[in-house]
Design a protein around this nucleic acid. Structure first.
Length: 201
DNA sequence: CATGGGATTGACT
DNA sequence: GTCAATCCCATGC
């Protein structure tokens, strides 16, 4: 991860909370580097195993039409949480990337549950661990992340993201095209940890 | 102001 | 494999 911290030239130490500089980079790099990091909210923890990148320059991104009311958060400071409502049913969690003023974010698509699993089961009303966080709508439900967290900070707010844990080896990455979209489907902006059983379908 | 679609999921055939 | 749920918001009149 060389060069990922333009302010002091130092990559995040293992286990340390990711700072603004981590997010203030090209969104595709941020999406790739988030694989293997830990997402934490109110005692629930999970390893990020699947992400997708979105950028205002391509039409699948909500920011493609500029800073409309819905997409406003996408243009906020890097490291801001963008939470929006999808299909009238689900809240989807994104990490805003690139410098402030650029509309770009990483969609968190799947987690491997690490702690607070019992609470996840209760919120999800499901037992199997591989079905707790294996999709963008599932993981927000499992963690209890709602629309009220839109605009909050991942750097010093209630939702935190931490660098790969000490002793955790670099994940084997798989790159593919994004799913569930109708535009710019050719871009290989989806990243996942190969062979992990907690991926979305 | 009215309309239609969507970065999904779970239940069902 | 198919399909409804359900609501914000972008778009168009």
């Amino acid at each position: 991860m060389a060069g990922c911290d333009p302010q002091d030239g130092r990559p995040p130490a293992p286990g340390e909370r990711l700072a603004t500089a981590f997010y203030a980079r090209p969104v595709v790099e941020v999406a790739r580097d988030l694989i293997g990091c830990t997402l934490v909210y109110q005692g629930a923890r999970g390893l990020i195993v699947e992400t997708e990148a979105y950028h205002q320059k391509e039409p699948a991104c909500h920011a493609f039409n500029g800073p409309t009311p819905r997409a406003q958060t996408l243009f906020a400071a890097p490291g801001t949480a963008y939470v929006y409502f999808s299909y009238g049913v689900h809240a989807l969690l994104n990490a805003v990337a690139e410098p402030e003023g650029v509309g770009a974010a990483v969609l968190i698509r799947a987690l491997q549950p690490v702690a607070g699993v019992q609470a996840m089961r209760e919120r999800r009303k499901r037992d199997r661990e591989t079905e707790l966080c294996s999709g963008p709508g599932k993981l927000t439900q499992a963690l209890g992340v709602g629309l009220g967290l839109n605009g909050s900070s991942l750097v010093d707010g209630p939702i935190g993201v931490f660098a790969r844990p000490v002793g955790e080896s670099a994940p084997l990455l798989k790159t593919s095209t994004r799913v569930g979209i109708t535009k710019a489907t050719e871009l290989e902006w989806r990243f996942s940890q190969a062979e992990n059983p907690h991926l979305s379908r």
